[in-house]
Simulated scan of single mutants.
Amino acid sequence: MNNPQTRCGWCRHATVMMPVDHQPMIQRASVTGDDFDAPGSPGWAVFTCAGCGSASLSQGFYPELGGPGKVYTHDFIPLGWYPQEPLVKEYPDSVPPKIAKVATEAHGSMSVGHHQAAVLMARTTVEAVAKAQGITQGSLVAKIDELYNRHLVYEHVRDAAHEVRFVGNDAAHADLVNNPISEDEARAILELMDMVLDGVFIAPAKTAAQKAARQAKKAAAATSTDTPATG
């Protein structure tokens, strides 16, 4: 079987996909049937990412060589991959574990099409962020504004948090039968939720790490200069 190239849905890197030696029974839907609209034999195949080693499932076909009996090649031509994005969202250690767990649940709900649940968990995440900063009094509106007043977030992050709040309130109280939350809307809200996590936890931690590394490098250089030569 050939080694197709794609972007891994797990690690998100461009990679070569390695076929699994022993393919499961779902590998081929048909090898000689005439009742399909495909340029060969349709089927499924399992591959692993050459980078992260995670398994992905591809839907595609085996090209037809032609001739009596419709002989098909061993090479598999992928038409689509699953998953297209990680099924489990991971956050760096700078995000408090309990908050990361709630945010991960939001992404997990999104991955299975539970858009309302995803938005509700995003709203919960934003409120948990405020409480983690010691802001425990008042409504969520007040908590988000206080994050900004304490210079813990920039203006655009404050506005992102409010957008999560608005749609989260709709998910909790609005008429979702006649006005459901769409996939695109839910996905946008999760992006804004992640923007809040980045602004409060991730970006400051990266900045602090870079500052510490720079200062350590400067200190090491000064020590090297002050040390007298021997010999």
Rank of each mutant, 00 (worst) to 15 (best):
H151I: 05
M121D: 09
E185D: 15
M18K: 14
E185F: 07
E105Y: 01
A128M: 14
D159H: 09
A213M: 08
G199D: 03
V71M: 06
C8D: 01
P228K: 11
Y62S: 06
C49D: 02
R150N: 13
A50Y: 06
K98W: 12
T227M: 15
Q210S: 15
A100I: 01
Q137A: 15
P204V: 03
T230Y: 09
V20T: 09
F166E: 04
N178Q: 10
S139H: 07
A45Q: 15
Y91R: 04
L140H: 02
V126A: 03
W10C: 04
A188L: 11
A38V: 10
G33P: 07
A188T: 06
D37R: 11
Q5W: 05
C52F: 03
T230G: 10
D37F: 13
V177D: 09
D34I: 08
Q59Y: 15
G199L: 01
H162Q: 03
S111G: 11
A209N: 13
K143G: 02
E191N: 14
M17P: 00
G199S: 05
A174F: 08
L65R: 05
P19H: 05
A100C: 06
P180N: 06
G43E: 02
A186C: 08
E85Y: 09
N149C: 09
A229H: 14
T15W: 03
P68L: 12
M18Y: 12
A103T: 01
A174D: 13
L65N: 08
C11T: 07
G80E: 02
A213C: 03
V46N: 00
A118I: 01
M193Q: 04
F36G: 10
F47P: 03
R150Y: 01
A118C: 09
F36H: 13
A160L: 00
I181W: 02
L65K: 09
R165W: 01
L190G: 06
V167D: 03
D175I: 04
E90M: 12
I202P: 00
A38I: 12
G40C: 00
R214W: 09
Q133R: 11
P39F: 08
L65C: 10
D75E: 13
P4M: 04
V153T: 05
A45Y: 12
M193S: 02
E105W: 01
H151V: 05
Q84D: 07
A38Y: 09
K211F: 13
N2A: 04
K131N: 11
S111V: 05
G67W: 04
H156M: 10
V16E: 15
G231Q: 10
D34L: 12
V153R: 02
G67F: 04
A208L: 13
A213E: 13
A209V: 08
W10G: 00
A174E: 14
Y91N: 03
T73W: 03
T223K: 15
M193N: 02
L79V: 11
N178P: 08
R123V: 02
P180T: 05
T124C: 14
G231A: 14
W44K: 04
M193G: 01
A186Q: 00
T136D: 14
T15G: 12
Q84T: 11
R150H: 08
M110D: 06
T207L: 14
S56A: 13
A172Y: 08
F166W: 10
K89A: 10
S30D: 09
N2I: 07
L176R: 01
R12Y: 09
T6H: 12
R7A: 12
G69W: 02
P19G: 04
G138Y: 04
E85M: 06
I181N: 05
S109H: 06
H151N: 15
L87I: 11
A45L: 11
